[in-house]
Every structure is written in C-alpha cells, then in structure tokens.
Nucleic acid binder design. Structure first.
Length: 276
DNA sequence: TAACAGGGACGTA
DNA sequence: TACGTCCCTGTT
C-alpha cells in the first residue's frame, strides 16, 4: 500500500463530482475504482489517503490517473477574492481532482449521460461492462469487469444495448464503436490534438453535442480550458453571473472551476441549507 | 395511477 | 433559433 498526505484531495468529493462513473463508495471512507484493467481500493483518513496497491502500480498508473501532480492550490488561488460565490464553491469542493480517464470510456459514458441522471448512468455502464467487458479478478479474488473495447461493441446491432437500459442512446454507442473500430475515429490521434481540434473531431460523432464533447475533453484529455455547460451550470450562470462567466480571467482552468460550481450546485446547496 | 423531469442531441422547420 | 422527439426510471 501507499500512504500519502495530500492537500486538495478528497475522495468523497471526487466520487460525488460525477466525472467518474466507476468509482464507488464502499463505506464511509473506503472507495473502489475500476479503470482500464486496474482495480483499486483507497481510503481517506483526514488529509491522508491510502492507496491499496503496490508502489509500482501507484507510480505506473494511479498517480497520473488522480492527477496528483496537479497544483490545485494554484488554481484556487486564481479565483477573484471578491467573487464570493466562486470562493464558496471552491471552499466546498476544493478536494476535487480532474481525473485522467480513458478516452473511449469517456466517449461512451457521456453519450449515455444525456437526458439521464447519475445513478442510472452508473447502472447503464455497469450493465455494458458486465455484458461486454473483460472479466477480471482483483487481488482478493473478487470478480470485476473492464470497460468494453470498441471492437466488442462494434459488431452489435444498433438497438442491442437497449437490453442494458441505454434506451435511444444505444445507437449512439454502437455507431461510435463502429467509427473507432473501423479506424474513421482514431483515438490516439485525438489524444494528441489541441482542445479545439479534439472538440471539433468529437462533434463528428453521432450523438455527441457541445456539452458532451466538452466533458470528454475535460475528463479524458485533461483539457482544463473545456467548460461543459449543462442545465445546472446554465442555471448557476443565470443566477450568479448575469453578465457572463469571466472566462478570460480564468483562461486555461475554466474546467476546474466548472467542477467546483457543478459539485457545489449538486451537493452543496442542500447541506448548506439552500444558502449560496 | 399518471404525469413529469432528469448532467442532451438530432432532425425539421 | 426553436421545438418536438427519442427511451428509461425514480419521484411526486
């Protein structure tokens, strides 16, 4: 195991921020994540975090996955002191990290996310993993499933994923799988692109609109300048930034701030008693 | 029981 | 730019 003191790192916030659909809360402080062929359990103890894996796997995979080299204190430090709302949001969700997740997995996950809520997105993804993902075993001998490869979904009929409860999104996912498996959409090429180029390319996929493209850019390609606008963010913008969100001021880190706002709107307003 | 909305996008006008 | 439609499910 690897035990570290980490500032601006909070598993509950990362899990609750809704960017990773395969991270689960096991108990109060214990979480599990599946990424690629990796399975990890980790535990938060105050500002210490325990990663239950060996040193090699931590340095070879999880350290980057959780963006532990990112300087989130400096992002927060850029917030205008007189912007009370944004400071509150960053105070509330300052332990969020923008994870570096798999591109294909994010494409599918956010195709599924449209007109959908988080609990059901999780179930849909679990369903397709169990049905079409590789069956693997963790260190304790427990079975888990990897995210399905594009090739595993490309051969399906367009409505095949209705059985996994994807609804009308089934055809989006199967068509995207065909594009990737057939070479028309080159994941590695997109991974090397700038934000603008990658966004443009993602929009060519059937079922990917601007919001979904931005989510993929942010959570898979780590384009921190991506600023996904969904109904929650739009609402927050109308209330707190009537003259527009100062994107120029925050050029290059808009996505981090978006996550603070999103999490604050989703989880913070309730525990704060509706105070914003 | 029925109606509705929930982290949208597409096709048509 | 605007609006109906797509499918499922938890909530009211």
């Amino acid at each position: 195991m690897v035990k570290l003191v980490l500032e601006n790192f909070d598993l509950a916030q990362i899990c609750g921020s809704g960017q990773c659909f395969r991270m689960k809360e096991r108990t109060e402080s214990l979480y599990s994540v599946i990424a690629g062929r990796h399975y990890l359990e980790l535990e938060q103890q105050g500002n210490e975090c325990v990663f239950y894996c060996d040193d090699a796997e931590f340095h070879g995979f999880w350290k980057e996955y959780f963006d532990l080299e990112g300087d989130y204190a400096s992002y927060i430090g850029k917030i205008a002191p007189n912007d009370i709302y944004l400071n509150n949001a960053a105070e509330f969700g300052g332990g969020i990290r923008i994870l570096r997740q798999d591109l294909w997995e994010m494409i599918v996950s956010f195709l599924i996310s449209q007109q959908n809520h988080i609990a059901r997105i999780r179930r849909c993804i679990e369903n397709i993993c169990v049905s079409y993902g590789e069956r693997l075993v963790n260190a304790r001998g427990e079975v888990f499933y990897a995210f399905p490869e594009p090739q595993s979904l490309a051969g399906l009929k367009e409505d095949a994923l209705m059985e996994c409860n994807l609804g009308y999104r089934s055809k989006y996912v199967v068509r995207a799988a065909k594009c990737v498996a057939g070479g028309a959409f080159d994941l590695e090429e997109v991974a090397r692109m700038s934000y603008g180029e990658a966004r443009e390319k993602l929009l060519t996929l059937f079922g990917v609109g601007e919001k979904v493209a931005d989510c993929i850019c942010l959570f898979a390609l780590h384009k921190l300048e991506a600023f996904p606008v969904d109904t929650h963010i739009r609402q927050a913008m109308q209330i707190h930034y009537k003259r527009g969100f100062p994107r120029r001021r925050y050029q290059g880190i808009e996505g981090v701030l978006q996550q603070y706002i999103f999490y604050y709107e989703l989880a913070g307003t309730r525990s704060a008693g509706g105070r914003k």
